[in-house]
Structures are given as C-alpha cells and as structure tokens.
Write a protein that binds this DNA or RNA. Structure first.
Lengths: 139, 139
DNA sequence: AATAAATTTGTAATGATTACAATTTTATAA
DNA sequence: TTATAAAATTGTAATCATTACAAATTTATT
C-alpha cells in the first residue's frame, strides 16, 4: 500500500487517536507490510529510524489500535502474537516451517449452523496451518 | 461421554502410547469434560486424586497427545492455551466475559477460494469471540 | 534380582507481556 | 512567552505460562 503520512493521520483522527509520530510510524508499518509482524519485528524495524523507541510503546500503541479496531490481533501460535493492519474479514494461513502468515479470502463467514443463536458475536477468526508452496519445494 | 478406563487404554494403544495411569487420567479428563480445559484446570482437577501429579507431566502428556492427534490445542487468547479432546472439525466460540468455550458445528470447512492451491493444509481452525447468552442475561 | 528403558517429578530458565513510576513531549491557560 | 496540566513515551521490574533438564521413580526386560 502506498499511504502518505497525511492519510495515516486522518485515519487515526477518525478514530479519535492523536496522530503522534510514533503512532503514525507504527500504523504505517502495519499497513505497508503485509507480513503480519510481531511486536519484535515492528520494534526492530522502527528502532532503526527512531532510536529512542521503547518496546513498551509498541505494545501500548498496538493495544490502543486494537481497541478501536484499526488493527487486529492474530493468535495462531501460543507464543507469538502477530498483528494485522487489514481488518476486513479474511483467513490466515501460517506456514509451520518459515512462519510466514498468508492471507486468503473466504467465500462467506456465515458458515455456522444455528448453534450460535443467542450469542453476541464480536469477532470471527479462521486460520489454517500447514506448509506453504515455497517450503514444499525447498526440502 | 461415558468412557471406561478400558476404552481409553485401547484408544491410547491404537496410537502407540503406553496407557500409564497418568495418561489415562488426563485423557479421561479431556474426553469427559467438554469445557476445553487449560493445563491449570486439568492439573487442579487431577491433583486431588493423584497428589504426586506434576504440572510438567500434564504439559508433557498433552503435547504427546497432540503429536498423535488425539487432542487438539485451542489457541484463542494469547495467554491461555486450552485443549480439546474432540478432534473432529468444529468451531469454537469463546465468551469474553466468562471465558467459557462453546463448540459449534460448521456447515463446511471448504470455504476458502483457490488462494491456497499449492499449500499443504494440515489444520483448520475457526473461532469466534463475543458474549454468550448466559452473560448477556446476567448484566 | 539386576539392568535398562520409560515415565514422572521438581526446580530453574526462558521469554513474551504487563505494571508502573519516572521522564519527556505536547497542549492549555495565564 | 511562561507556567501548568495533560498526554505520550520510556525503562525497569514483575508476572506468568511454558519449557529445559537432571534427578527420582516406576515399569519392562534379561
């Protein structure tokens, strides 16, 4: 995605978040990288340009973003939380070898039977695990 | 479910796992409780009957079971892994209030478009989050 | 009964996340 | 502009689930 700083600021302001330098950088990182980065990945990428960055800020900012639904948490493996700047409904495929997370489209997310009548559904998640084509070839 | 010790032993042996006392107890716990317990829950339930039980054993045993696919990991929240003795394809709904995990049936798990041709899919997971009917009423 | 193999245990290490107080930056009011 | 308050960021320490690992126990084999 080719997002200007201005676009990102507007996006944040729409959700009543003051677009500080750090916040813009973190959101840009999530919107431009489609690789569903971990906190560590984001931190390491940004700390190059902003040496004073603290990992706590990355954590704080991401949970701020999640709270207003401009970012989503991807919980696939227990030990590593990943984040997604794309909040539209879609599935994730995580390669068990290279740990890459791929997106995939889902025909329809209305596939449950009536088991859940009476439940208030806030969030739907679909993820697969397996081996990606790249790793299937490289063995 | 009304499973005899004998049934459980046979089930384990089918997967080349020696049915030790602890293993049988842990598997029984998962098969009879439909509440998708955490390690802690399993440990606390079993330690009453077997006071020497170690939490490490619960961890070891569960990963042994997962390795041969008689138990599945449910990763919904980052901070608490839950386990499921039902390995058939179905979805999970986790109540954000009471933390209960409910099962629900899925019409079909073949809902991805062809995005994943060339991928080797080992595992499909669907989970929702929200508020269960019980908690919706109790506010 | 002696030995080897498998299982279980308990403690310590790991590592991601959170709590929190201190510091810095930004906004507001005099 | 300067002083003051509010918000954002930082850094360190605490938390807590999970794992590593070596010792102890149990089970199987000779």
């Amino acid at each position: 995605m080719n997002l200007s700083t201005e676009d990102i600021k507007v996006h944040l302001l729409k959700h009543n978040i003051k677009p500080s330098y750090h916040r813009v950088a973190i959101l840009r990182c999530l919107l431009s990288n489609k690789d569903h980065p971990s906190v560590d990945k984001i931190y390491n990428e940004l700390v190059k340009e902003m040496p004073t960055l603290s990992k706590t800020t990355v954590y704080n900012t991401l949970s701020l973003f999640c709270g207003v639904n401009i970012v989503r948490v991807i919980t696939i493996e227990e030990n590593e939380t990943r984040y997604d700047g794309d909040v539209s409904d879609h599935g994730h495929f995580k390669c068990e070898k290279c740990k890459t997370i791929y997106d995939f489209q889902i025909k329809s997310l209305d596939f449950e039977i009536d088991d859940l009548s009476g439940f208030k559904i806030n969030e739907k998640n679909v993820y697969y695990k397996g081996i990606c084509p790249k790793c299937l070839n490289n063995k």
